[in-house]
Computed example of a mutant assay.
Amino acid sequence: MSTRRDFLNKIAMSGITLPLMSTVQPTEAINITDYQGPVLRVAIMGLGSYGTRVAEAMRESKMAKLTGIISGTPAKIKDWQSKFGIPEKNCYNYENFDNIKNNPDIDAVYVITPNALHHDQVIRVAKAGKHVICEKPMAINAIQGQEMVDACKKANVKLLIGYRMHFEPKTLEIIRMRSDGELGKVLFFQGLAGFRIGDPNQWRLDKKLAGGGAMMDIGIYAVNGARYMVGEEPVWVTAQETKTDPKKFKEGVDETIQFQLGFPSGAVASCLSTYAMSNLDRFFLNGEKGFAELQPATGYGPIKGRTHVGELNQPHITHQTVQMDEMAAIILQNKKPVVPVDGEEGLKDLKIIDAIYQAVRLGKKVDLKL
């Protein structure tokens, strides 16, 4: 398996115990069964495997519709035009996409390109007056992330980050249980995120494009998951790096990082991010009164979970369909999600990742101020 998306898809397929119900709409989440209101018109930037997954999922969306595409590959543009019915006037390349400013068919752009490209592309979209959805991590460091947040605020457009798990039903049920005190005082969180990466020439192993290695790809799930599972912001981090293949994982491209987080309440987290081990997609939350576990925790689904009171049985809905409907509600109706998905949320993860890399370099605890 060569990429995080291959890994997440494989985890999903290997863990299926419920039928895939991509046609089931997230009515419980935003009550849109008979939705007749405004629709968010979205252009996807970056027509790779995940862009395709999002586009396919949007076929089932009620509040979001694919209306435009941006790509540097003319053949992909032609293919998508045919597949998704995109008119020529809504097709752009990376040189001319600033012209979306004058296109009323596009309300928002979903940036799904390599990490290092996000910063400039998001700022250009904001300057064009369009809302932005950006894949995670939103940038390669917190300085870039802050500049993106500031640019979107200045342009008076929303910046959302592609945290699909923030809308996943089993995940939200655990968050509800924790918030309602059913787990008691939270004591410990474990987040395992990893797979064996394949092609050594892919962009995810190129520091200039990825900004790092496993931490910037799969590890961000454990970073973000620790925050929404514990329900607090960490105040310190320690971290250790292991590298067994320096030829494949060159300088600045991390293979495996173990990191620990401390929270104001005294809760601690122990997490693993790796490109060298498979079968790692597990969250475990322990409290004084009970526990909650997800395994797989972040795959494309179905997510499987249990707590001290039994199995979690919320139905599986295609994550990207739910995400796009929920994000449309945030942009069009100013809906407030249970767990934020805005630029500030993405910026906090980047600050933690910066601190993790710093802790690896220094070999000591690094304080966090989020």
Rank of each mutant, 00 (worst) to 15 (best):
K153W: 05
Y94C: 02
I140N: 04
I100T: 01
G162E: 11
I133V: 15
R178V: 02
E173P: 04
E147I: 05
Q146F: 03
K136P: 09
L172R: 09
Y163K: 14
F167K: 05
N103F: 06
N156S: 15
C134M: 05
A151V: 05
Y110M: 14
V132H: 08
I140V: 12
D98N: 08
N99R: 09
K170G: 04
F97A: 03
Q144E: 14
I175H: 07
V111L: 13
Y110S: 12
E135T: 10
G145Y: 09
E95T: 13
H118I: 10
N141F: 01
P87I: 07
G129H: 07
E95W: 06
D150E: 11
I100Y: 00
I112G: 10
C134T: 13
D180I: 00
Y94R: 03
N141H: 09
M165K: 13
L183S: 00
I143D: 13
H118Q: 08
P104W: 00
K170L: 06
N90L: 07
A116K: 14
F97L: 04
I112S: 14
F167V: 14
L160E: 06
A126I: 04
D150V: 06
A142P: 11
C152A: 10
D120A: 13
N90T: 09
K136T: 09
P169A: 01
R124H: 00
D180V: 01
K170F: 03
K83Y: 07
I140K: 05
D107T: 08
K89I: 14
N99H: 07
D120H: 13
N115C: 11
R176G: 01
S179W: 00
T113P: 12
K101F: 00
P169H: 00
T113D: 10
K89Q: 15
A151M: 02
F97Y: 13
I133R: 04
N99E: 13
F97R: 02
F97I: 03
K158Q: 15
F97V: 03
E168K: 04
V132G: 09
I86S: 02
E95L: 10
A108N: 03
Q144W: 02
K170P: 07
D105L: 05
N141Q: 02
I100W: 00
N96K: 03
K154S: 14
Y94D: 01
A108T: 11
I140F: 02
M165E: 12
D107W: 01
V122C: 13
R124C: 00
V149P: 10
I133Y: 07
H118C: 10
N90Q: 13
L172D: 02
H118D: 09
I175P: 10
P104L: 03
